[in-house]
């Protein structure tokens, strides 16, 4: 079920464009902001509001890397796996995160605290390796730094 607030935000987005379906990505992001991910049920509701076939919206949703179609933990770690970060020691950082959290890419810790996902170049290549936790960017990563960063996200 979408909340009244979500529906209101979606309607506001719709008003910006000549066709309703142009608000599809914004709408999915609104739902994801509130519910952490986009379930089939939520997606169907959004499709109804935007007057789009469900399969078409599903097609859009699955196309983007940052629309989650599976539940994620309370915090999402996006580790940059692009070239400059790879050169600057990404594999060590990934190995450390895998061991420390006991999860690989695409998995969520048992306590539902973290989901680990790869992401493409974060545009912070001169301070590689870099990662995002939720909306926050961290760079010049070392294994020691990771310990401090993760502390902040409970």
């Amino acid at each position: 079920m979408l909340s009244k607030e979500e529906i209101k935000l979606i309607e506001k987005e719709m008003a910006k464009f000549p066709v309703k379906s142009a608000a599809s990505i914004e709408s999915l992001k609104i739902v994801q902001d509130k519910q952490r991910w986009v379930s089939d049920k939520a997606l169907a509701e959004v499709a109804r509001i935007l007057e789009m076939p469900v399969t078409e919206l599903e097609n859009v949703a699955s196309f983007y890397n940052l629309i989650y179609r599976k539940p994620v933990g309370r915090h999402v770690i996006h580790l940059c796996e692009s070239i400059s970060c790879w050169v600057m020691g990404l594999e060590d950082i990934l190995g450390y995160l895998n061991k420390k959290l006991g999860i690989s890419y695409g998995e969520t810790t048992e306590d539902d605290r973290f989901t680990l996902l790869p992401i493409q170049c974060l545009g912070d290549c001169d301070k590689a390796p870099a990662m995002m936790v939720d909306n926050d960017l961290y760079n010049n990563l070392t294994t020691e730094k990771i310990d401090d960063i993760l502390q902040k996200y409970q």
């Binding site: 464009f17 379906s21 599809s24 914004e26 859009v60 983007y64 890397n65 940052l66 992401i119």
Partner: peptide, 22 residues
């Protein structure tokens, strides 16, 4: 604000993305 896909930077793909399409 996009939802992350490199191809969106290609100018005609970007137009489809802005229109809410793949």
């Amino acid at each position: 604000v996009s939802a992350g896909r490199y191809i969106c930077g290609e100018e005609t793909a970007l137009l489809n993305a802005l229109e809410g399409k793949r």
